[in-house]
Amino acid sequence: MTNILTATDLSKSFGKKEALKNISLEIPRGKIIGLLGPNGSGKTTFIKLVTGLLVPSAGEIKVNDLDPGVETKKIVSYLPERTYLNSWMKIDDILSFFEDFYPDFNRIKAQNMMQDLELNSNDRLKTLSKGNKEKVQLILVMSRDADLYLLDEPIGGVDPAARDYILNTIITNYQENASVIISTHLIADIEQVLDEVVFISKGQVALTASVDEIREEHHQSVDGLFREVFKC
C-alpha cells in the first residue's frame, strides 16, 4: 500500500524567512507519529502544507499520492491549533455542518463523545470555555473516518483527565490503514501512544525513529531524548 504521506525536498519560506528547508519524509499507514520540536521549528507550517492551507515554495508533498486539493481534503482530518468555531453556532449546528461536508463524519460517535465529556449539544459555542472548545474540535476531528489525522497541539489546553480520555479516543478510533500525526511539545503526555517520532528543528528533520528504537538504542524515553537533542 502506498504511503499516506510523502514529502520530497519540501521547502516553505515566508518572504526571506525560511520556515522549512528540504524536508523529505515518508509516513506509512497504520502509525501514530509524533511530530516533535521546539516552538517555531516548523511543525505547524509542515502540517499546513499537508492540508493545503499553504502552498510549498519548492519540492512537493503528496497525500495518498495526490497533491493537496479537494480529493485529499476528503481523507484528511485536521485539528488546527486555532479555534475555528464561530461564536453563533450551537454544538448541534457544528455537528450538522460536519455531517454536510464530510461523508465520513459519524455523528453518533461524536454525540457519544460529547456526552462522555459532559458537553451539552444545545450549548452555544460562544459560551464554552477555551478547553471545552478544544474538546469539541477534537471530537469533531476524531469522529471522522479519515485516512490521515493531523493534530496540531491537540492537548495543550485541556485538563489531564480529559487529556487521557482524548488520547484514548485517538488510539481506539483510528482504523488500521489510517495514520495519525500529532504535533506537540508536551511529549511526556503522549509518549505512550506514539509508534514513531519525527524530530524537527529549525525547519529541518533532525531525527526520525520508531519509539522502540529510541528505547533500545538510546536507552531513553522520547522525552529524555528530546531534551538531549534540543538542549538549550
Binding site: T51, G52, L53, V70, K73, K74, V76, Y84
Partner: peptide
C-alpha cells in the same frame, strides 16, 4: 481569520 482553518480544509473548490 481563524474560521478560515475550517473553511479552507473542507473538501470544496
Amino acid at each position: 481569520t481563524d474560521e478560515g482553518y475550517l473553511m479552507f480544509t473542507l473538501p470544496v473548490k
